[in-house]
Write a protein that binds this DNA or RNA. Sequence first.
DNA 1: GTCATCAGATTAGTTTTTCTAATTCGATCA
DNA 2: TGATCGAATTAGAAAAACTAATCTGATGAC
Lengths: 296, 296
Amino acid sequence: MRSLPPLNGLRAFEAAARHLSFARAAGELNVTPAAISHQIKALEARLGTPLFRRRNREVLLTDAGQALLPGVRDGFDRLAAAAERVQSREAVGALNVSVLPSLAARWLVPRLARFHARHPDIDLRLSATQNVVDFSREDFDAAIRHGRGTWPGLRCDLLLRDEFFPVCSPSLREGPLPLRTPEDLRHHVLLHDSAREDWRLWLAAAGIGGIDLSRGPSFNDGSLLVQAVVAGQGVAVGRRALVAGELAAGRLVRPFDVVLPVDRAYYLVCPAAAAERPKIAAFRAWLMAEAAEDEG
Amino acid sequence: MRSLPPLNGLRAFEAAARHLSFARAAGELNVTPAAISHQIKALEARLGTPLFRRRNREVLLTDAGQALLPGVRDGFDRLAAAAERVQSREAVGALNVSVLPSLAARWLVPRLARFHARHPDIDLRLSATQNVVDFSREDFDAAIRHGRGTWPGLRCDLLLRDEFFPVCSPSLREGPLPLRTPEDLRHHVLLHDSAREDWRLWLAAAGIGGIDLSRGPSFNDGSLLVQAVVAGQGVAVGRRALVAGELAAGRLVRPFDVVLPVDRAYYLVCPAAAAERPKIAAFRAWLMAEAAEDEG
DNA sequence: GTCATCAGATTAGTTTTTCTAATTCGATCA
DNA sequence: TGATCGAATTAGAAAAACTAATCTGATGAC
């Protein structure tokens, strides 16, 4: 266990030694010359030897001051460099991001190659989990969350607006029991999310009644649900972000136009204090661009 | 102008990182764990990134903390080493001492070879001047002063008690006008110090009157006075310390036994805070030993 | 020589920072 | 299940740092 001298005294000493003037040192540190005088006096008392010769219109370093200065400078340089390194940690190395598994599988992972092409030095590490990360307890740099963008202490950037609409495979729509109107849903298997609320909400928005909502399997993961729909196992209410890719590829179609808007959305979040770290800023910029392209 | 992170926060961080425990870090720094928690939180806010992962019964360093630690350690090591170097500056190098010219010439300089033999690494630099040095304004480590040993803020060690008695050359005493009793002084030249008080005081102590004190030259430097006496130019009231060497060598003799005691003495003084610096302590120890030998 | 000026010291009082005490929280362990 | 442990949090207390005002002593202009 090392015994350190008074650190703020050393800072005052270093500035005064550099300027050979208490007044200029005070200017640099945004305090009054009296404060510098106090600090240096205390440091001298602690070290047991004068560090400055006080002449009338100038101060000079004593031998002891001369001896102290290089080491102090050196020490401060290293502290500043270490802090600097951490503060704007170079835009390289690991970037830990927590993502909802459904969005990861359906939206983010397919785009990762593009991110890597753009930022080959950033080693993006995705953790796909339903848990809401606590940045103060877990070592994550950022997360993609679904919600209203009202998380205190976090910087939240809207990525993808959300909306729901029914989707099914083309073969289902054009098959022996075609889907032309919502009433046709009676003849089809309804696939649900784990809350089994999606169909009820959409049917209410569409103004349709008399459909039995108790039928059909449910999936605890949005990605699995989409997979089931693509496989032609039924009709589901899809989240735009999760089905956009399959719609574009023609593996899914929208049998009806009615859309259920929701006030929740996907947000990129990170601790407010860390928002401008280069790696995080780079990831955010890329993500926002991808999302804009996706929605536009 | 470098921008330093909060230094006390870094100190708390370093201790906590070393112990991987806020509580133990608090113990080391003699504060409560809450103080450590505060400091580190502030540092994290400043650096814009968490440094610790708070688990339930332990804290772990984040990547950022891992990255910060070595540099901080390194910086502190250098600061501590620099302070350490100055604090107990090695017993080598320059030692600046201010001495009264008379004592320097008659007492100290003849002994310097012995000091150098004992402490070859200490480069003793004597400044012989009548000025009373102000340690806060001049770069002196120590001084030998004549007085009562009551200088505030200074460590004072009694070196040589002082007393006055007449001295003359052997040839003068044994010459055509011998010096047997104080009355014989009438036939001799009296040599004075610059205050011209020495003879008056001694004659009063000896209970002698009727001697003309206006006669004879005066010297502003005790050493010159002794030189004049050795040269047989008259009789002087000598300071014990300044004539002891000449007496021992037989170049001076004491015609009378009466001694005028004085309450002043020679003291070694230095700033109280610097009293135990190795170089100064070494010089003091040697000086005290020489003085004891001289008096004993 | 006298006076204004300058840089720092000093003192006392204020502000800011830092710390503590008390309580809470969440997880582990008996 | 309850006890315990380590850290977080809060409000308030203690300590450190700072400021404002004044003083000092040398310098340089006039």
